[in-house]
Design a protein around this nucleic acid. Structure first.
Lengths: 194, 194
DNA sequence: GTCTATATCAAGATAGAC
DNA sequence: GTCTATCTTGATATAGAC
């Protein structure tokens, strides 16, 4: 198996992305454009320009391909988060509120693509293990340092709810309401326990 | 097309469920047991005891079958909610907190099955239209009557987040933490605007 | 490491008998 | 309204040449 790349293709220095990354990029485009149900080896073959043999050399099975997709996005999100935390620390801001802010603002890695991962996870729950790992670790860490841990948990849950709603196209919040809600979340997480 | 049934099979008086309901029950079992990716006409045929022709007579295509599944579960949830609201009204309790309570407690219609619907929705977003309809209507209605609407929105989002976490097996809350969080949510929704 | 060609299989859907 | 039989397509995966 080729060496695991831990950086997303776009952020790498090397002008020539690896075959793996080209294929993963193609797979992402397929899911975004056509939906998770149309993510087939053949579709990725067409989209990537590789031949079937070439694709299946890099990812011996479809499951391996999906695992690769999950691993790459988890990596990317992990980097984003660590960057935001580092910035907050350096500028003496609260890590907690910085994270809520970025979590709200960040374009959530293309809805359709995330839905695709979700769909894949429905079939193979173990695919989400890396995601679970990242999230649990992060939250335990953060909540432990919060002034009001239970309230912090609620704020995190609400952010999840917000992302979930986005993902499913359930936009029962107008832009104004959403802005107010996000501001309120930051406010809640910053408040000392009353 | 046969007349639409608007009640879930289990709650009907008729001892002989319709062919549609037998087939939908079988489909649910398949999704719960084997996952959404294994929901095929053939699997439903095996599980229901019907023949392929019989299944496809009642649901002319796989998409029709999934639509039927979504419609039935939306109906069931809708009934649960209306029941809870009615109870709250009759006993003079707050509808809002009653709903939060039931939303937290209710066994969420078998995780795997809901994940299946989600996965299906990833391929055909329009499948979630009925769900969207139910949720938006309910929330606008409720939030409008809340003392602190933005806080009410946050509480609803947090409940969504809770369900989402359950669905994905992301249980970063211990049972004790979860109990405290749920209690706190009810508390938040009951509080007058500070 | 990447290609072509092909084997194998399962899925959705149709046709027509009963 | 339900059955059996069949058609068609498209998917994963393998084998072996280059």
């Amino acid at each position: 198996m080729p060496a695991r790349r831990s950086m997303a293709a776009e952020t790498r220095k090397d002008p020539r992305p690896s075959a793996r990354d080209i294929i993963l990029d193609a797979a992402e485009r397929v899911v975004e454009r056509d939906g998770a149900g149309r993510l087939t080896i053949d579709a990725v073959v067409r989209e990537s320009g590789f031949s079937k043999g070439g694709v299946l050399y890099n990812f011996p099975s479809k499951l391996d391909l999906i695992k690769g997709m999950v691993a790459r996005i988890v990596d990317a999100v992990h980097c984003d988060i660590e960057l935001a935390r580092k910035d907050a620390r350096e500028q003496g801001h609260s890590e907690l509120s910085a994270l809520i802010r970025t979590a709200c603002e960040k374009e959530p890695h293309s809805q359709k693509f995330m839905m695709g991962l979700l769909a894949a996870a429905a079939e193979h729950p173990e695919l989400l293990d890396p995601v679970r790992g990242l999230m649990t670790q992060l939250r335990e860490d953060l909540v432990a340092n919060a002034a009001d841990p239970d309230l912090a948990r609620i704020v995190f849950l609400a952010v999840d709810g917000l992302h979930f709603a986005d993902l499913l196209g359930m936009d029962f919040l107008s832009p104004e309401e959403r802005a107010r809600v996000e501001a309120r979340l930051v406010e809640l997480i910053s408040e000392p326990k009353s």
